Amino acid sequence: MWKIMLVDDETIIRRGLRQFIESSHSPFTVVAEAKNAGEALQQLDQLPAHVCFIDINMPNMNGLDLIGLLHKRFPSIVVVIISGYDNFEYARQAVQLQAFDYVLKPVPKSDLEQLLYRLDTHLQQKFPDQSHTKTSQDKPHPHRNLSGGDGTLLIHTVTEYINDHYQDPELTITRVADLFHMNPTYLSKRMKQETGLSFLDYVTGLRIAKAKEVLDDAASNIRIHSLATKVGYKSQYYFSRVFKNKVGLSPLEYKNRGIDA
């Protein structure tokens, strides 16, 4: 099993990540947790890990400084930043520090599943001589097509792109069609034929599904305007209207449905 260390000063975040990782079908196990950089460095001396999930905002030393130290003391470790800050400067520094990914909290479970899938693939390439990992045949691939159909390679590639960029508010059919050198009308027709959904319906369904995952997380206290931005909407009010149209409840009503029952 690939070994993961969780570094976050919030106990509830570490607990949630541990529960998800260890209940998933991916070949990962959490070997240690730390609430600050000092604890992380001390524990890594005793419990080496392949991957370190690190929060940016921690007492005494922030996560970016910790990554710098990890590169010197544990150069083979793979770092994933999980942050509550959608900050371009943080993201830029993360790229400079060669972080594997920069993920914003709270993270939809399907996004975490895909992250683990990509990490497993990366680690198998990085450590090809380690035979304790599962093979790709043993590992479930995240469900990526909302329609459930296989489709052609072209439309599969397009939907993969949409799935990976649903948070982008500028994700339009014109932009995606240009990226794949296609006519927007032709792309729309092909998507409808192969997924059963128009481009807009596909993107909307994906975004609302991701929003529901975040709202279903009992540990999440995200504000509705932040959730709207997180799933690709510039306007909280438009997001709320679309959400209610699809779900039958407003985002806040959906979040509080168990409390009010």
Rank of each mutant, 00 (worst) to 15 (best):
F20W: 10
E113T: 09
Q114N: 15
Q130G: 05
E213C: 07
L44V: 08
A228G: 03
L66T: 08
E253F: 00
I21N: 11
K139W: 02
Y254R: 04
H71I: 10
D201V: 00
S110M: 01
V78D: 06
Q19S: 13
M182P: 02
T152F: 10
K134R: 13
D164I: 02
K234L: 01
F53L: 13
L6D: 14
V176F: 05
P142Y: 02
A218G: 10
H71R: 15
E160L: 11
Q19A: 13
D9N: 15
Q114V: 09
Y186N: 06
L17M: 15
D86F: 01
K255D: 13
T174P: 00
S250E: 09
H225F: 13
R14Q: 15
T157D: 14
L17F: 14
L179K: 10
D260I: 14
H156D: 10
A211N: 06
K35C: 05
L104K: 02
G258T: 13
V78Y: 03
R18V: 07
I54N: 11
H156T: 09
P140H: 07
D150L: 12
N256Y: 12
N245D: 14
K139V: 12
L44N: 06
Q98M: 08
P169F: 00
K105V: 06
G148H: 02
D217E: 14
K72F: 00
D201T: 00
K126F: 05
V51A: 09
L17R: 05
S83R: 10
A34S: 14
E39H: 08
D129G: 11
D168G: 02
Q43C: 05
S250Q: 11
L227P: 01
Q137P: 00
D120H: 11
A99P: 02
F88R: 06
L249V: 06
M5I: 14
S147K: 08
I4S: 12
L123F: 09
G16M: 07
L17P: 04
S147E: 08
V103R: 07
K109C: 03
K134W: 05
L171R: 02
R118S: 06
D86G: 08
I222V: 15
T135M: 11
Q96K: 05
A228M: 06
K192W: 05
V78S: 13
K139Q: 15
K192Y: 07
V214C: 11
F127R: 08
H71Q: 11
K212P: 08
G38R: 04
E113N: 13
I56M: 04
Q19I: 09
D55P: 12
